[in-house]
Amino acid sequence: MQILLRKSAACLLNRYFGTPSAASASGCTEQIQYFDRIPRMIVETKIIVNPTNRRKRILFITNTSAGQGGARQKMYPVISTLSENNCEVTVYPIIPNEKLTADSILREGFDEFGRFRFDVVLCCGGDGTLNHVINALMDLDIHVPIGYIPSGSTNDFSKNLNGDLTTEDIARAVAGTHTYDYDIGRLEGKYFNYVAGFGAFTGISYSTDQTFKNVFGYGAYILNMIATLPQNISYKQHVVVEHDGQREEDEYIFGGVTNSLSIAGVESPILSNASLNDGLFEVLLVKAPSDLIDMNEIVQGLSKGNADNPYVKVFHTRKVAFHADSLLDWTVDGEFGGSYRDATIEVFPRAIKIMVP
């Protein structure tokens, strides 16, 4: 890992010559730029200095129903690691039937003066759980870093950012000082972390029964995909796509707006150059095939990263609009995102800070 460190002059004075006034004037902020574990992705982080040395306040939101219930096993090591690293942890489980949702939990985090009482919001669950947390943070105008410990069935977003980090590694990062700003998207008022899509197979994630996912994990998606293969292959929708002064129009089997190296747990070379904080999302459009031979060409093109495939269109944009002849069912981060004939997606650059090692 290559590290480039830039320190403000005031911080250097404070560290080596003891001039607290200079440090106070600058906020004693250090910036680090380093190469993340993900190939081709440069991550910018900031070191946050805590002048009072008080215990860091962590709001820990956990969804024990996600995936195969992995959040239960991760709770103790997470809380233990955070406590050992000078953190004060408040734990809330997500229980929708008891009206304990990400939104309701975060609303309780404000004090009587309207200030948010926590330094970090830590989420343990699947990509859908993180999606609910991000939407609540944006809707409530809460600007604190987040942490994310994956325990879902696919965990695409975590694969993009955390790589092979252990639960304890992530907990130590949450207790630490490095943050990374990443882009999020918004589809008709609903925010998403890494993907919004329509078309074949996009409904698999939210239509698969939770109990089925708890038992079979990622295999539940595969089984459901096989069961719905005939209707998914025959799916097509006439859509007009407008972006950056250009217009695309065709019958599509799939459309996706992504900020990810993988979708549904599968990495595609066609998305290998994606960056999480360049202010751009990748748009992937797949034309409807005429027969199984065409379908095979599409699959080959996607698996080999061939963007010249006549059935596959890829471009980068900050804003894109979709206009369909009938309602399109959208998926955002594996959750149902609504049905629209006309939908606009836009990027919110570096809107979320996440704790990183």
Rank of each mutant, 00 (worst) to 15 (best):
T29F: 00
F254P: 04
P310W: 11
V356P: 05
T177Q: 11
C124E: 14
V347M: 15
D342K: 13
F116A: 05
D329N: 02
T202N: 13
L130C: 06
G256Q: 00
L82M: 13
P349C: 02
F17C: 01
G152S: 10
E282V: 10
E112A: 06
G176S: 12
I263R: 02
I95C: 07
L292W: 08
S24M: 04
S339T: 08
I352W: 03
Q73L: 04
S65C: 15
A307E: 02
K7H: 05
K99N: 15
D139K: 09
E242W: 07
L280W: 07
I48P: 06
R55D: 12
P145C: 12
S104M: 04
K74R: 07
Q246P: 11
Y252W: 08
E248M: 13
L12F: 00
D329Y: 01
F336H: 14
L328E: 05
Y92P: 03
T52E: 09
Q246G: 13
N259K: 09
L271Q: 13
D325M: 10
S268V: 15
M41R: 05
L82S: 13
Y76F: 06
S8H: 03
N85K: 13
P230Y: 10
A274F: 06
G189H: 02
P349R: 07
R107K: 11
Y92D: 09
E297S: 04
Y34V: 01
D141K: 06
P357K: 11
D141E: 12
N53T: 03
A264R: 14
P77I: 02
V239A: 05
L284F: 11
F110C: 09
G255I: 03
L161N: 03
V356M: 14
Y206R: 13
L187I: 03
V332T: 05
Y16T: 02
P310Y: 10
E282L: 12
N273K: 12
G265L: 05
F118E: 07
L165Y: 06
A307N: 00
E335T: 09
P150H: 09
G185P: 09
D294K: 10
T129F: 03
L59V: 04
N193S: 04
A288S: 15
Y340W: 06
I352Y: 04
D291M: 10
